[in-house]
Amino acid sequence: MMENFAVIDLGSNSVRMTISKVGGDGTYQTMTQMKEYVRLSENMGVEKILQPDAIERTIKALREFKEVYSKLDNLKIKAVATAAVRQAANQKQFLKKVKSEIGIDLNVISGSQEAYYDYVGVSETLPATNGVIIDTGGASAEIILVQNGKVSNLISIPIGSVTLSSKFDLSNEVSAAELFKAVIFVNKIYSNVWWLRNGLNLPIIGLGGSNRTLAKINRRFNNLLDTDDIHGYQLRNSDVNDTFQRIISKNLEERKEVPGISKDRADIIVGGLIPVILLMNFLDSDRITFSTSGLREGILFERLHEIIKENVKDMSEEELL
């Protein structure tokens, strides 16, 4: 019997939903994809408190998602929340509000779970035998070192597009001093991740909204058709650095006009690209491959494996009867 499997991923910047029709043999077809920019981590401050406006925007988006999935039969929902909710001092109250107003249990996953799902989503859809995966979100970045087709190390670091942009005032005019501070800050974090140097010279796989934007800017710049078709798209490190240089020389209004940057992301794109730019330099990596497959797809593949296992078990029980 076909199952409608909905994955909701509540990040710090956006909330996304993918609904797939899943067959008993582990095949699937993506039916619906929705995304809303909710900026949940906006103005959380050092107290790490989710703000009323951000909460309302999030509830509104979840309500719109519900209108879509509530029409489906044989529905299974897996809803996860990442860095913003993970760090929030008022996490319990927020989860309660979502439960009472929307009726879903939001599962707050750890940074390492998030990183692992990213790995599953990437490795099922791209050749990733040896490489370093980076998923830059709104409030965190997940980094996964893959060696010989297996995860050898992973980490979630609280450096994201929203957090870095606000900490170093990078949303409008980018001052040399603030950019320098941001670079020193992120490089220091990288230096403290002892295993990261094992990724020296390995190719990088980038996912998350900021990294996807980097790919889109380059596809538009090179007049490639179908800007959004970036899964497996590659860029040399020189192209990546040139793009970053073009972006940091612009103010907010000018960045909004750059083809490939959505207006909702123009104020956080500088902070959002710092982690990948510095990682490529830190590891002296010569290229980056982009993936549109990550956390949500990782959760979907996990479900597909479960279904296949259940069916194998049912078949072997039938044989016993």
Rank of each mutant, 00 (worst) to 15 (best):
L224D: 08
G294K: 02
D286R: 05
S171V: 06
N251M: 12
N281H: 15
R303Q: 15
E257A: 15
L207W: 01
G272C: 07
F282Q: 08
N172Q: 12
R255T: 02
D286M: 05
I261M: 06
T227N: 07
F185S: 03
V276A: 06
I217K: 06
N251F: 14
I269T: 03
I274G: 00
D267R: 05
F244R: 00
S191G: 10
I288K: 00
R220K: 10
I274R: 00
S262L: 12
H305D: 09
V258T: 08
K313M: 08
N281Q: 15
I189E: 12
N237I: 04
K250D: 02
R219Y: 08
I189G: 00
L170P: 04
H231A: 04
R255E: 05
N311M: 07
T227Y: 10
V174E: 04
K181I: 07
E173W: 15
I184Y: 10
S191H: 13
F180W: 15
A176C: 07
K181V: 04
L252S: 09
G260R: 07
S191T: 12
I248S: 11
N211E: 05
G272F: 02
N251Y: 12
L300M: 06
S238Y: 04
I299K: 01
I204N: 01
S175D: 15
E253K: 12
G294L: 04
R246C: 14
E310Q: 14
Y190I: 03
T243I: 07
E178C: 14
R255S: 02
E297L: 09
E257C: 11
G199Y: 08
L202V: 05
W195D: 09
I269V: 15
G232Q: 02
H231V: 05
S175I: 13
N222T: 05
I299L: 14
